[in-house]
Simulated assay, not measured.
Amino acid sequence: MGHRLGRASPVEGGDIPWSGCPAGDGLKHRTVRNAVFLSAGGDEVRVRLTNAFGERPIRVGRASVAIQDEGAAAVPGTLRSLTFDGRRGATIPAGAELFSDPVALDVEALSKLLVSVYTPQATGPVTNHPFTAQGNFLVRGDATRDVAGGGFASTPCWMLTSGVDVERGRKVTGTVVALGDSITDTAATTGNADQRWPDHLARRLDAVEGPTLSVANAGLGGNLLLGERDGQPFYGVGAVDRLDRDVLDQSGARTVILLEGINDIGYGSSAPEIIDGYRQIIDRAHARGLRIVGGTLLPFKGSSIWTPERQETWSAVNEWIRTGGEFDGVADFAAATASAGDPLRLAPAYDSGDALHPGDAGTEATAAAVDLDQLMPRHPRDPGHDWDGDHRRRD
């Protein structure tokens, strides 16, 4: 299985402010049903379950996958039971992730799957992804084979599922991983509408004729580049610390797009400190044979974290991204989303209302700033690929 398509960035279980996610208390005799956006299609899928931050093993009684119809309901005839080494149940060790066996299922690009996991025993705090801009579902008992989904209540987080791989579809040669914070994760986009900028990038890549890439979203709301926010584990460990699990070890990873650092500026990090973090990620990506594209930080003047001193840091960081020559390519997200009258502010049409996060139109403009030729050109660090540079859109 080669092409990573679902979410890739879990955090430890705990209480999450402003959220009804039960990850802190954990699950017992419950089925969680996660809705997962697919960037590419195929006829075989494999699901990754996670207990990456768990302190004890988690027993999975049963699990299933299906194509989403509406809400918690599956498209009739598409529900498939999952097995693990041929067994319906499995135990996810503490600190580990677990792949299901591949299962035959025809899925279309830009569609959604429902991944259902039943936990018969108390799990303790559950590894999760807290901010999803996506409704997910929860019900008492084993409902993994429930097609209609009528008994499920909504829950705002992904739990236990960290991603889906799809294989044997059209010629997808690898995966581009978008590494970032809330602007990559959900921003202030419309819920259940798949309006994140990596979703828009997936649409652009799906429209390419010839070899193309799938997209994995490794964004985490509130995340820092350089460290963890004290007392707020729901924002995840820093990007430099989660890089292996969330990016480098993902199936089929070929290219990274890095858009992170605005939260570090808000916490007082200097431009040299942020640039040093970028260099660590660049070096580690290159050591694994991946390309890495640097995304300039979006304008933030007028937001709650803006100060003149932080503006100077932002300007220095973006200048280095553009001219430092250490990234394999640059996506100038700042220029693409800036106001024509003031390049230090988000364009009004792209601003969600807080002068920091782009809304739906802003995330689409962000994705449009990515040069597809930079994602997978012929390159000495990746001699085995067969990208032919044909980026014509289908009629």
Rank of each mutant, 00 (worst) to 15 (best):
G2W: 11
A8M: 12
S9Y: 14
G14N: 07
G14R: 07
D15C: 00
D15S: 08
C21E: 07
C21Y: 10
P22Q: 11
A23R: 02
G26Q: 01
F37T: 08
D43Q: 14
E44F: 04
R46G: 00
T50I: 09
A52C: 06
A52M: 13
R59I: 02
V65L: 09
A66T: 10
D69T: 10
R80E: 10
T83M: 07
T83H: 08
D85Q: 13
R88W: 06
G89L: 07
E97Y: 11
E108D: 15
A109G: 15
S116A: 15
N136W: 05
V139S: 12
R145E: 15
V147S: 00
G151K: 14
C157Q: 05
L160E: 09
V164F: 01
G174T: 00
A178G: 08
T186A: 15
D199V: 04
A202K: 07
R203N: 03
R204I: 00
L205F: 08
E209L: 12
E209V: 03
G221I: 00
G221C: 03
L225Y: 01
L226H: 02
Y235K: 07
G238N: 08
D241C: 11
R242F: 12
R245T: 14
V247K: 03
L248V: 05
D249L: 14
Q250W: 05
Q250P: 01
T255A: 10
L258H: 01
E260W: 06
Y267M: 12
R284H: 09
R291C: 01
I292T: 05
T296E: 12
G302R: 05
I305S: 05
T307W: 02
E319W: 13
R322V: 09
D328N: 06
G341P: 04
D342P: 11
L344Y: 14
P358G: 06
M376L: 13
R378L: 15
R381W: 06
G384A: 10
G384F: 06
H391L: 15
